[in-house]
Write a protein that binds this DNA or RNA. Sequence first.
DNA 1: TGCGAACGTTAGTGCACGCTGACGGAGGAC
DNA 2: GTCCTCCGTCAGCGTGCACTAACGTTCGCA
Lengths: 120, 120
Amino acid sequence: MPPGAAAAGEPLDEAMRALAEPRRRAILRLVAHDELAAGEIAAAFEVTRTAVSQHLTVLKNAGLLSERREGTRRLYRARPEGLAELRDFLDDMWASALDDARRLVEADRAARERSEEEDR
Amino acid sequence: MPPGAAAAGEPLDEAMRALAEPRRRAILRLVAHDELAAGEIAAAFEVTRTAVSQHLTVLKNAGLLSERREGTRRLYRARPEGLAELRDFLDDMWASALDDARRLVEADRAARERSEEEDR
DNA sequence: TGCGAACGTTAGTGCACGCTGACGGAGGAC
DNA sequence: GTCCTCCGTCAGCGTGCACTAACGTTCGCA
């Protein structure tokens, strides 16, 4: 494998794919405010505990979740650093798109002023 | 279906699913700066023109793209408003996660101060 | 040491999705 | 009119993924 290539998905790609699933976003919102055990999280949904456990694994691998063990229980919490990465991506996209829009408005106004100049 | 659940495509959900695909993110980056025709976009990738066309449809339905016709050509451009929606979502998540982290640090410091108090 | 609770893991299934190839339609050049 | 370009759409195929049921593991407790 080439040195530059990621093992199994760039970090941003994994985070995006993880957040594409509505249930995983709901889980993330749940543990954004409070640290909860896997069982408590699973109880909040109408799917099997297994499904929730798999979702938690995906979120953890994507760097969006932190895990802490306490006896037989596993406590989960949202990880701000994981969210920061793709927030930067969106900020870049958003900024460039806005720049483009601003340039358009500017060009349009300039064209209109030239037109008014000719009218005089 | 529970009352709180989305029917089959909240705007944010569609945008997230659209951005989950790496190729679609690349397309979006391509038209973030310049307005390009479907053929020009397709030429930038090593997949069929058909695949790119379907990606463009998905992005357009998600509100992330604007379409403009010019003769037989169809020109595409990134739509800042579509990006704004999910940026707000991430901002909420990010803010609450950071709030949580700040509360944790605060609680930890308070506990440490209490501990030092007992040591005296 | 045995037992139950709390989770993760594995095998299997149904469905959504990205890709391709073939086809259809709209618009310009002659 | 005919031809060509540019592009979307449909049918089909393979893969990935969310889910379930059954099993394995770790920990606390009597």
